[in-house]
Each structure stands twice: as structure tokens, then as C-alpha cells.
């Protein structure tokens, strides 16, 4: 292939990178500025005297640790439970012949077509009836099954060679053992990718925690840090950006370490983080 001197490619790509990254940079810059500098009329694209003041105030004024813990418990709980329900159902659809299989499969997959907002009011009423407001189960349980997960894993389980499972079963393994000792390990890559997608999705949830976690000790990161917002005009931008910075760190770390999984599953699944 001949190498064209495509001079326009790099400027376009650099421009796109800047457009994508500058909001996060502006967040970082603000987090390190002193209040005096943030509210001064002069404009400086970097902090004059970088200070930890905003971070100190965040740690002092709000239970950041608790918000982290809540986000982590909710995201991990949803991810694990969704994986479990998806693996079990996908195995049944992929490897068993049973009455009603096609119809049931359609019913499972069709749940992907129902936007959460359309059904959130009755779900909220259910959670209220259970007295699950401001509890982990209230935050987690409505999200622990995924039509998409069932659908994706069934595809993988179906294409997995039957010889292996047959061999396992001839060796005396039950279906249950075959699932966990042969099918799941052999599809580890797909399951990991799905887990990463589920985790990002759950970690970034906002609408549902906003409804269910009304008390501060149960709030997740994106809901909790809004304590710094004051609609009457007294928003504390420094601490807000410092807490936003802290809240983004886990997502960025996950992205750096699981980038291949994230990019590949994003491309093959059509699901966005």
C-alpha cells in the first residue's frame, strides 16, 4: 500500500481528541483552582496556584467514602446478579429442547425494547410497597435480569461445539456441572466482556438512584455529589468538580485496564456505556 501524505488526517484526529477531552480537562483544572480564582473575572486556562483545598472540602463536607461504597455495592450487585440470571437462562435456551422455547425466548429478548422511563412509575410504586426505598435491594433488584445478556450469551453458548459438553456428560457430569465446568469457562471471554458492559452501565445509573435513594447515606456518587449544586446561584464549583474528578477515576481505570473488552463489546453489541 502506498503511503499518501494525508496531511489532513492528523489535524482532524487531533481536533476530535481535543473536543472529546477538553470538558474533562476543564473539570480537572477547576478542581485544582482556589475559590478566589474560580470566581474571579479573569480567565486562565490553568490553575495559578494549584491547591488541594477543593478535595479537602469534599472529603470533609460529604460522605464520599459512603457514596463510593454505595456505587460499588449497587454496580457489583447488579453485575453479578445479571450475569447469573443471564447465564442460567441462556444455557436453557441454547442447550435444551422444551415446550414454549421460541415464545419464551422472544418474550425475554423483547424486554430490550421497553425503555426504562416508560415503566419506572409502576416499578417505583412496587418498591414503595415493599418498603425498599433507600435500601440496596431497592436499588439493585429491579435491574438484575437483562434480555440483552440472555440473548448475547445464548448466541455464544449455541456456537460452542456440542462435542465438548457431550464428552463431559459421558464422563458422568450432570447438566449443572457441565454448565459451570465446561460451558462457562469456555465462554469466559464473552462473559467477561458482558460483565464489563453490565458494570459500566450499572455504575453510571442515575435515574433510578435519584428516585430510590432520597436519603444521603444511600446515595450513589452522581446523585450524592449534587449536594454542591445550589439552584439559587450558590453552586460550589470547586468542590463539585473535585468530587466529579474522584467519581470519574474508577471509570477511567476500568477503561484503561479493560479497554479491549469495552471497545470490542461496544462494537459487537450495540450497547453503549
Amino acid at each position: 500500500m502506498r503511503r499518501d501524505p494525508h496531511t489532513w488526517a492528523h489535524p482532524v484526529l487531533v481536533g476530535a481528541c481535543v473536543a472529546m477531552v477538553f470538558p474533562m480537562l476543564w473539570m480537572l483544572v477547576t478542581a485544582w483552582k482556589s475559590p478566589a480564582e474560580i470566581y474571579s473575572s479573569g480567565f486562565r486556562p490553568w490553575p495559578a496556584n494549584p491547591t488541594l483545598e477543593n478535595f479537602v472540602r469534599v472529603m470533609r463536607d460529604v460522605p464520599m467514602g459512603r457514596f463510593f461504597l454505595n456505587s460499588l455495592v449497587v454496580a457489583a450487585g447488579i453485575t453479578l446478579a445479571r450475569l447469573l440470571t443471564s447465564i442460567l437462562a441462556a444455557y436453557a435456551f441454547a442447550r435444551f429442547a422444551f415446550w414454549g422455547r421460541e415464545v419464551l425466548f422472544y418474550l425475554f429478548v423483547a424486554t430490550m425494547l421497553v425503555p426504562f422511563q416508560v415503566i419506572m412509575i409502576p416499578i417505583f410504586l412496587t418498591i414503595t410497597t415493599f418498603d425498599w426505598l433507600n435500601t440496596y435491594q431497592g436499588l439493585i433488584v429491579p435491574h438484575v435480569a437483562s434480555g440483552f445478556g440472555v440473548f448475547l450469551l445464548r448466541q455464544h453458548f449455541k456456537t460452542f461445539p456440542l462435542d465438548f459438553t457431550d464428552a463431559a456428560r459421558i464422563d458422568g457430569a450432570t447438566q449443572w456441572q457441565t454448565l459451570w465446568k465446561v460451558v462457562v469457562p469456555s465462554n469466559a471471554t464473552a462473559i467477561w466482556s458482558l460483565a464489563v458492559l453490565f458494570f459500566i452501565d450499572a455504575w453510571n445509573q442515575y435515574l433510578w438512584p435519584l428516585l430510590v435513594a432520597t436519603e444521603r447515606p444511600m446515595q450513589t456518587l452522581p446523585v450524592g455529589i449534587q449536594i454542591f449544586i445550589n439552584p439559587e446561584g450558590g453552586t460550589q464549583w470547586g468542590p463539585l468538580m473535585a468530587s466529579a474528578t474522584l467519581a470519574i477515576v474508577p471509570s477511567i481505570l476500568l477503561y484503561v485496564f479493560a479497554q479491549r473488552h469495552i471497545l470490542e463489546s461496544a462494537v459487537s453489541s450495540g450497547i453503549r456505556g
Binding site: 476530535a16 472529546m20 470538558p23 455504575w203 456518587l221 452522581p222 477503561y255 469495552i262 456505556g273
Partner: peptide, 8 residues
């Protein structure tokens, strides 16, 4: 360029 996708 993909990075904003993973930010909440």
C-alpha cells in the same frame, strides 16, 4: 475519542 462513552 471513545473515552467520553465510559464517563457517566
Amino acid at each position: 475519542i471513545f473515552s467520553p462513552t465510559v464517563v457517566s
